[in-house]
Write a protein that binds this DNA or RNA. Sequence first.
DNA 1: CGTTGTTTTGACACTAGTCAATGGGTGTGG
DNA 2: CCACACCCATTGACTAGTGTCAAAACAACG
Lengths: 239, 239
Amino acid sequence: MTPCPPKTSCLTCRLSDLCLPFGLQIDEVETLEIIIKNKRPLRLGELLFSKNDQCLGLFAVKSGSFRRFVINAEGIEQSLGFYLPGELIGLDALFDGRFTCSVDALETSSVCELPLTRLNELCVKIPNLQYQLTRILSKEITTNHEQMFLLSNNSAKIKVATFLLMLSKRYGALGYSHTQFNLSMPRQTIASFLGLSNETISRQLTSLCKEKIISVNQRAVVINDFISLQAIIEPCHNK
Amino acid sequence: MTPCPPKTSCLTCRLSDLCLPFGLQIDEVETLEIIIKNKRPLRLGELLFSKNDQCLGLFAVKSGSFRRFVINAEGIEQSLGFYLPGELIGLDALFDGRFTCSVDALETSSVCELPLTRLNELCVKIPNLQYQLTRILSKEITTNHEQMFLLSNNSAKIKVATFLLMLSKRYGALGYSHTQFNLSMPRQTIASFLGLSNETISRQLTSLCKEKIISVNQRAVVINDFISLQAIIEPCHNK
DNA sequence: CGTTGTTTTGACACTAGTCAATGGGTGTGG
DNA sequence: CCACACCCATTGACTAGTGTCAAAACAACG
């Protein structure tokens, strides 16, 4: 609708402490935001990019949420991760300049684009920026390890509980409620992400509801009993 | 046995093209190798570091192999990945200076240590080095995504076949045979890595042997029929 | 109000886990 | 050099947890 979206300012963006500007001096942030390009908002299902596309820049989520996925051997979409505001999309492409997964919008969402060539120039000039980028890359690796840990050795119940707590933590860090939030993805997408069937997701959510640990109404989730939800994951954390 | 291990030289190291020196000028490599510290070889089961240890440096595998793992809620070791020669260990600690997993040696193995403070200094002086480190971080993220893809949605047979092909590819890249190699880890460790039980690993290997696709004798594996092994993973790759 | 897509629920099948027993290698000590 | 113990791997029997298929309930949208 807006013919020309308002110019992004990292200085006034409430996400900047979660994003690339974290730790930068004010003048450094001002230099950074010069290179940032706004993109028009994407709607549900719209692709930000596809696997094997050339990467011209990284993306920072400004609002909404995105999903990373690939198409498997049977032609089925397999969800591999989610991006919430403040998170950087496309880090896997720094290796050889091509995206290794596809990313689409889970709802109406927007991003800031950081053109790669200009970002690289800036990283040489601003060591703090390079440092923060390295930290973000490292953090992504740790997040991946946690995800692998979750997928390798756990029951459906533990997977679903962990998924809910993970979202709770991330929404909390964004300043939203960590006890009630809306899932921005359908059951099928959660299922694919957790390596389960959508029926199993449904049954596990129903089961948690019956135990009064959560309440679910469509995409709306309320966590009623945080302690019990935690206890599902770490049954003997009192040891 | 050797009282003072011979000084490492990246210039003569046959792994240098897989490691941090890739893409560097000769004089840059010479500057890099000044900061490298040798560590005495580790034996089977010895810890390189533990989860939550302070990270003083990254490690490059010189020989042998390592395993990344954590202890889960039941007190069981959960294997999360393996490191072969030329690969960098500890990238997850760049975020906040603490290791997020433990790493131990799967056999007698050795590493080069890259002290973090000196590596950071050098990265500012040598942009190529910073660039290569970023590439390695990005590649690690892609490897993690592949691992998550494998864990999320596949049968035991596909997991075991993919595991064998992954090792085949990595050994091949190191200049070893990609059709026969020794597993450096017990079945239990493979099982934990793939999110399966050790009995299932055993049964799947036996099954692949009966199909004449591989031969297994203890830790020794021979891939007899590469095409069929590939076909297990991508049943319809001829489409 | 009908169409469509999503979610839930039920019935059943099947994969992989668990438990238990057996077999095979390796290493140590007599 | 052999016997024993220990660890690891294999195999079998049984079971539990999920997946699959199908149908029904529900919500969203035009």
